[in-house]
Simulated scan of single mutants.
Amino acid sequence: MLDMNSSRSVFGVVLACLAGVGITVPAHAGIKDEYERAQACDYNKAEYGSDVGVFDEVSVRFCISEDRRFVVYVMRSGKSWTLPFDRDYRQAGVMSLNTIEGDKLVNYTKKEGVVKRVILGRKRVDRPVLY
């Protein structure tokens, strides 16, 4: 027979495995949602345009998702991706935060204790066509 300590550890392992399986299912739905959210941002109608010198040789524009949880990066070619908006996130070991300050989209990064502030883009203004 199993003693009480080993049965608790077996129960703990089984519970951890079941919890792990339950956690992976919503992740797939999150990826699909992220893809659909990224596809919803149209390059020509994007609210923010990339600032000079931020993205070399690539035109990038930005949209904020309807629920204001994500910022969508979209390229002229149609490729797009999302990152969290107005909350800290970690990517490749670097802490980051995307937020809005006035009419600017700003990214803060913290790496090895040093915080950098980069203006990613500015609010786009529709200008009348001059003939």
Rank of each mutant, 00 (worst) to 15 (best):
4 M>I: 09
14 V>Y: 15
128 P>V: 12
96 S>A: 04
59 S>F: 13
111 K>E: 11
109 T>Q: 05
104 K>P: 02
18 L>N: 14
73 Y>D: 01
28 H>T: 13
50 S>D: 07
23 I>V: 15
18 L>T: 09
70 F>H: 01
121 G>L: 03
57 E>V: 03
83 L>Y: 03
67 D>Y: 03
81 W>M: 02
114 V>Q: 08
35 Y>T: 02
11 F>V: 01
23 I>Y: 15
55 F>A: 00
92 A>D: 14
43 Y>Q: 03
123 K>E: 09
25 V>Y: 15
37 R>T: 02
32 K>N: 07
111 K>G: 11
64 I>K: 00
84 P>Q: 00
70 F>M: 02
5 N>F: 13
116 K>D: 13
27 A>F: 15
97 L>V: 02
101 E>H: 09
38 A>P: 06
100 I>K: 00
124 R>F: 11
24 T>I: 14
99 T>W: 10
31 I>A: 08
118 V>K: 11
59 S>N: 05
21 V>G: 14
53 G>L: 06
41 C>K: 03
120 L>M: 04
12 G>D: 14
90 R>P: 02
10 V>D: 06
62 F>C: 00
97 L>H: 06
7 S>H: 11
75 M>F: 09
94 V>Y: 13
7 S>V: 08
102 G>H: 05
76 R>P: 00
10 V>L: 14
21 V>C: 15
65 S>W: 10
6 S>W: 12
3 D>W: 09
62 F>Y: 04
41 C>A: 07
2 L>A: 05
100 I>S: 00
47 E>M: 10
49 G>N: 05
8 R>K: 08
59 S>L: 10
3 D>K: 04
18 L>M: 14
13 V>P: 10
34 E>M: 12
124 R>G: 00
10 V>T: 10
122 R>K: 12
106 V>H: 06
105 L>E: 07
47 E>T: 05
37 R>I: 01
47 E>W: 12
94 V>N: 08
118 V>A: 04
23 I>H: 15
82 T>P: 00
56 D>R: 02
127 R>K: 13
13 V>Q: 06
26 P>K: 08
108 Y>K: 02
74 V>I: 10
67 D>F: 09
29 A>K: 12
72 V>T: 01
105 L>T: 03
8 R>E: 13
72 V>H: 00
66 E>F: 04
98 N>Y: 07
5 N>R: 05
46 A>E: 08
60 V>M: 01
55 F>G: 00
32 K>T: 05
56 D>M: 04
102 G>D: 03
12 G>C: 04
16 A>I: 09
50 S>V: 10
106 V>E: 08
41 C>T: 02
7 S>R: 12
23 I>W: 15
54 V>N: 11
100 I>G: 01
12 G>E: 14
121 G>I: 05
95 M>K: 12
35 Y>N: 02
121 G>Y: 04
110 K>F: 09
23 I>L: 15
24 T>D: 12
86 D>E: 08
95 M>L: 12
89 Y>R: 06
39 Q>I: 04
126 D>V: 09
100 I>H: 02
25 V>K: 14
61 R>S: 00
12 G>T: 07
58 V>Y: 06
